[in-house]
């Protein structure tokens, strides 16, 4: 299926958000996630199923003003 990760369209077979993060090499990185503009807490990632067309945001701490 095709999904959009941080603005880039890509193919994945990952069934869950948790599996997607592993597939993309995030491992234990300090990141937070949203699917289709809704926040998905870390503990909920294994249950978060992915569907064709989903828009995923994966963010981390950064400098800010």
């Amino acid at each position: 299926m095709k999904i959009t990760v941080n603005g880039t369209v890509q193919d994945t077979a990952a069934p869950s958000l948790d599996a997607l993060l592993i597939e993309l090499g995030y491992g234990a990185a300090k990141v937070a996630t949203a699917v289709n503009e809704s926040f998905v807490p870390a503990a909920m990632r294994p249950e978060q199923r992915l569907n064709d067309g989903d828009r995923i945001e994966i963010v981390a701490p950064r400098q800010g003003g």
Partner: peptide, 18 residues
């Protein structure tokens, strides 16, 4: 003040900043 921004897999910039 801090922020959040997109991070690529394997980047690990967020952890370093934190």
């Amino acid at each position: 003040t801090v922020s959040v921004r997109r991070e690529a897999g394997g980047e690990r910039a967020g952890q370093a900043f934190w």
